[in-house]
Write a protein that binds this DNA or RNA. Structure first.
Lengths: 193, 193
DNA sequence: TATTTCTCTTAATATACATTAAGTTTTCGT
DNA sequence: ACGAAAACTTAATGTATATTAAGAGAAATA
């Protein structure tokens, strides 16, 4: 069972004792999913946190026209959650699915809470990565109102150079907030110039 | 010195011992500022966390045309920070100023970190409010790509009923991501119908 | 390998919102 | 209380991006 990526990610911030690590490992669940398979559907309660160990997941919302809007990509080493549903217990607004065959670890909410109270170092880790995520969302919000579509695309390429190579263009379009048609046009008219 | 609002906010989530509370109080700094006064300027390092005790602060970014875009309002009882600058030490992209005469408490970064390591309950509190903030930003991002300007306005009114009464309309416009002219037109043509 | 199902492209038309500008009303600082 | 500054309104014009549609290319599944 490959929890090494998770342990390594935690070890960047805190040093768990062997028994703390064993306790952590004891509450992990392992899953494999195929491309396009959903692990969270709008309306469900998101009662676990999910850590991707291989492949790539994505979270997205669907608008009233049925168009999908990608909120996040989670390649190996990333967490992905509908945080409002997780913290408040409300139905999720997000869907989470696999964009390629993937493997992930999840921790049920009750275990996650107990980990945090019984291992202060784990809670420290979570506070820090929470702050990092918050920083990311704050600046994404600013970018979205401040930059043009082309600038947001350039930004995405800089921030996620590995993703840009593997992702279908329409998913990148959805993430940066334009239609696939417009992104296509934008990229091709630039090259010609 | 009015730290009651802060202590009450923390007490909603954790129960500090008297000596923990004393230690916390010992690192608090108190400030008053006038309307329009800046407490963080783009380019500065945001090396403190700020908790508003009266009045209202706001964070905003300025685009290349000089237009301001409001990221957050912080009335009494709210925290406000450029989280990327705070966590990474990079120069801030955000400005923070007072939209009315205000009072706030701040905690320098070094003290904030020490509070978190020495008082696990304080770190628990921060993890939880961090999760809440993350939930808010995730859904704001979704709302921004999913809803029309009118729907975003309606959303804002629901979420911040107290703010909508006191804020100048142009700041609401900036928060929901439209020009003041467009918001004005939008609101007036609705009423006529 | 064939066939279906996505993905990308191009282009015409449409629209939500921005920009500019000028006038009016409200608020603020002295 | 007064003058200056800020906030709001209206309207004409402009633009970035959406929508629709249809064909070509690529990739997934059987």
């Amino acid at each position: 069972m490959d929890q090494n990526l998770l342990l390594a990610g935690i070890a960047k911030y805190v040093n768990l004792d062997p028994e703390e690590q064993d306790y952590l490992i004891s509450v992990l669940h392992y899953k494999k999913i195929k491309r396009k398979q959903l692990i969270l559907e709008e309306g469900d309660i998101n009662n676990k946190v999910t850590f991707v160990t291989s492949g790539c997941l994505r979270s997205y919302a669907v608008d009233k026209n049925g168009t999908e809007h990608v909120l996040q990509f989670a390649p190996a080493g990333w967490w992905i959650t509908d945080m409002r549903s997780f913290t408040t217990g409300q139905p999720a607004r997000l869907n989470i699915d696999a964009i390629e065959d993937s493997e992930y670890i999840y921790i049920p909410k009750a275990d996650f809470e107990e980990l945090n109270t019984r291992i202060p170092k784990f809670e420290h880790y979570n506070r820090i990565i929470g702050q990092n995520a918050l920083a990311t969302y704050q600046h994404r919000q600013i970018d979205n109102v401040t930059l043009s579509a082309m600038e947001r695309y350039a930004n995405f390429c800089q921030l996620y150079p590995s993703l840009i190579k593997t992702l279908p263009q329409k998913l990148v379009a959805s993430y940066i907030g334009v239609t696939p048609e417009f992104l296509s046009k934008m990229l091709n008219t630039i090259i010609v110039k």
